[in-house]
């Protein structure tokens, strides 16, 4: 009986963490849209929400993180966008999630949060460009990919550093007791 109790406790904690992370990610995207920063590269953005996705991948199982990504994308789409822009962001979000999850499985020892967030950001760009090129039936859009790669490295480093600070801080909270993973 106590083990059952513990299990449901763990499941509850997971749900709470997913909800909190998704909410924070939505707020971060809102904040990001308010920052009047001109990246001078179309489609480039800071990707602050990626901080939460990556942290979630470190703490929870892949399916919980996937749930969180879907929630975050849905909520952001409801707040900002239209149906078509939702299709583009979900494409980017899923690409990014898949890439980061794969890297965490394969290269956790070799890559730190910085490397993984760089790949996540770039995968997001590639996913969106692929969606756009399929939608408009043109490959001209990939013209902007090299610039996006450079921007992805810069923003990825920033996001990675944020994650490196966030994970140890969150680990001190009792909510995260059962979820400690070895981090970079």
């Amino acid at each position: 009986m106590p083990s059952l109790n513990e299990q449901s406790n763990l499941a509850l904690k997971r749900t709470v963490i997913v909800a909190i992370f998704a909410a924070v990610a939505v707020v971060l995207s809102l904040v990001e849209s308010l920052i009047p920063i001109n990246m001078s590269v179309p489609g480039a953005k800071l990707g602050l929400a990626n901080i939460m996705v990556l942290t979630c991948l470190y703490f929870l199982r892949a399916r919980d993180a996937l749930m969180m990504v879907l929630l975050k994308t849905l909520l952001t789409a409801f707040i900002f966008g239209t149906f078509s822009s939702f299709l583009f962001s979900i494409m980017g979000a899923l690409f990014s999630f898949a890439a980061m999850w794969f890297l965490l499985m394969v290269g956790r020892k070799r890559l730190s949060a910085i490397g993984i967030s760089i790949v996540g950001g770039i995968a997001h760009n590639i996913g969106q460009l692929t969606a756009a090129s399929l939608y408009f039936n043109t490959t001209n859009i990939f013209y902007y990919l090299p610039m996006l790669l450079i921007m992805g490295v810069l923003t990825g480093i920033a996001v990675g550093i944020a994650v490196r600070y966030l994970i140890p801080s969150l680990s001190k909270l009792s909510l995260f007791d059962g979820f400690l993973t070895e981090t970079a």
Binding site: G107, R110, L111, S112, I114, G115, I118, V119, I122, L145, P146, M147, L149, I150, G152, V153, I157, A184
Partner: peptide, 21 residues
């Protein structure tokens, strides 16, 4: 930052440069 990160960044910058230059 680990060595893998540096390698990754270098690789991406080289790919981007190959298109941009």
């Amino acid at each position: 930052m680990k060595r893998g990160d540096i390698l990754l960044i270098g690789l991406i910058v080289v790919i981007a440069a190959a298109f941009l230059v």
